[in-house]
């Protein structure tokens, strides 16, 4: 029930942000369509704990976001330099990095790896992420495990 309510509130917030009209008729239409979507989601059995991660630490989360933006900017510049370089100095490497057992942390970690240009997570089996890196340096930086350490702090330990 808690997850349905949070889904409904989220959907209605999106409706308000996208429409920008506050007339009674449109608000009622919004409420009805949000309720309808929640009903469909219930029927499809997709409303569960994955839809609403409640035990994140907000401050760590914001810190992590800013750190990740910095990393993305740095690796963007690096990859752009390599692409424009006449000799194309790349050394594609495949490396396996250990991830946390927790599902949400795995998702955050793998998505962060993919978001950073120069590293793409290509497979995830038994809490081990297979990463394709554009350069050997990128692979080594990932193996240092700073990103993994920061991801671990994002969620409260159970």
């Amino acid at each position: 029930m808690r997850h349905s309510i949070s889904l409904f509130l989220f959907l209605f917030a999106v409706w308000l942000l996208l429409s920008g009209y506050f007339e009674t008729l449109l608000l009622v239409l919004g409420l009805v369509s949000c309720a309808f979507v929640v009903w469909i989601a219930k029927r499809q059995d997709v409303v569960d704990h994955e839809g609403h991660p409640v035990n994140l630490r907000p401050i760590r989360w914001i810190q992590y976001t800013f750190w990740l933006i910095g990393e993305i900017v740095k690796s963007n510049i690096d990859v752009a330099r390599r692409v424009w370089h006449p000799k194309l100095p790349i050394s594609p490497t495949i490396v396996k990095v250990p991830a946390d057992a927790d599902e949400l942390r795995q998702v955050i970690y793998a998505n962060s790896i993919t978001l950073t240009p120069g590293t793409v997570s290509i497979d995830l089996t038994d809490a081990t992420i297979t990463v394709h890196a554009l350069t050997r340096e990128g692979a080594m930086a990932l193996e240092q495990g700073e990103m993994a350490r920061r991801v671990r702090g994002v969620r409260r330990p159970e």
Partner: peptide, 13 residues
């Protein structure tokens, strides 16, 4: 696989 990296550049920054 290397082209994947090129695509993630405009997708983020």
């Amino acid at each position: 696989f290397t082209r994947l990296h090129a695509v993630s550049m405009p997708d983020t920054l």
